[in-house]
Amino acid sequence: MTALASSAITASDRPLGSAATPARSFVGGIAAFARREFRDAIASRWFLLYTVAFTVLAVGVSFLSLSGVGSHGFAGFGRTAAGLLNLVMLVVPLMALTAGAGAIAGERERGTLIYLLAQPVSRTQLILGKYVGLATALVCSLCIGFGVSAAVLAWRAGGVGITAYAMLVAFTALLALAMLSVGVLISVVSRRSAVATGIALFVWLTLVFVSDLGLMASSILFRLRVQEIFSLAIVNPMQSFKMAVIVNMNASLDVLGPVGAYASFTLGRALPWVLAATIAAWAAVPLVLATILFARRNSP
């Protein structure tokens, strides 16, 4: 955090647009902030820590899944993917939510936000730039983890399941973008960075554990029908993500019992797209909200 703070201050010492010339184009302004945010991110400890942790865990899962009993081609890959799925669902939302939560609240608390806003760029450009920069950093971090893990798979299992693996990477990136969006929204509405981080952790806990446990309990208590359970489940981006990855591996959701079979039967080929759309909505809606709220504020 200190690294982030100090780099933020040094970064804001530099001109973002060239102050001598009139304001940059809209996209140019966003790009300038994105570059700055990206530089700050990869120079900071959280990024390094998360990248290293994610990479070590991903490689560990790949190794464990493929060791001991032989890989058995596709079958072994299924296990690796299931392990990676669990890992991704725990770690990636945590990375993205906390990274997003620090984006605005941290600078506001340290007083650096006012310097940034003094630049000849709009508030919209600033927040979008921050989002793009952090998103790029996150995706890079995931690419490193999945890249090393793919190298292990190539070495131990050959090219089995490469499409499913590529889709796992793509959907993980989409999930990270969605969670980053939520994090940024939390950051905009929080006055202090500790509060933002707290809320982010709460949201993480809710999405990862509480909502699933709640839905399990409600499905038993209220005797929910499969279509109701499915509709409620895909509201959670974590569940949508999980189903999307499984549907890419198995072409059907029968793995997930009656509810999955119902989803495969009714939606058919549209299923992966529906799932991708719900995650994309989680990326778009909070970001738009955050931008509107941030642009409307009078105080930093």
């Binding site: 799925l85 990862v208 699933d212 359970i229 499915f230 489940a233 019992g257 509810v259 999955g260």
Partner: peptide, 8 residues
């Protein structure tokens, strides 16, 4: 069974 492969 919808909830297999989840942290929950």
């Amino acid at each position: 069974r919808l909830f297999v492969h989840t942290p929950a």
